[in-house]
Amino acid sequence: MSYDNELYQQVILDHNRKPRNFHEMENATHCCHGVNPLCGDDITVYLKVDEAEEVVEDVSFTGSGCAISKASTSLMTNHLKGKKIDECRVVFDEFHKMVLGEFEPEKQEHHLGKLTLFQGIREYPSRTKCASLAWHTMVGALDKKTEGVSTE
């Protein structure tokens, strides 16, 4: 019962089944809605940012989508909690480049941790958007994009 591609690993499966930080956030300071029209993935990312310290104190999300998008969002929320805003943008940049095949975590210093699990998505360019939707939405929230973000 396994798949060659590391995409569908236990961790991703687990986060798909039991997504972490999967709830609305009442006292959110930032929020953004993101859609992937091709797949129908539809999520909202909530952030609680301490503006003085420039720290993301809390992250949560709601929505629906495929296993890749759900697990990616869930893992992102865990990964970013407590990080400085600047660090969040660095991780976004590294993650985005990794799924596009432009960044090799095994060869370069990185801040991705477990998120390297999503490297396998590069074999499926049509699905990189499933993995990166959460991240675009998170940056949209930081940038206060009230109109939301779309992968198309």
Partner: peptide, 22 residues
């Protein structure tokens, strides 16, 4: 239990080509 896009990617790993989507 599974989103059509996950089904397609997983079947592809068994060499099976299907269309997933609307």
């Amino acid at each position: 239990s599974a989103h059509p896009h996950d089904i397609i990617t997983m079947l592809d790993q068994d060499g099976i080509a299907l269309r997933g989507g609307h």
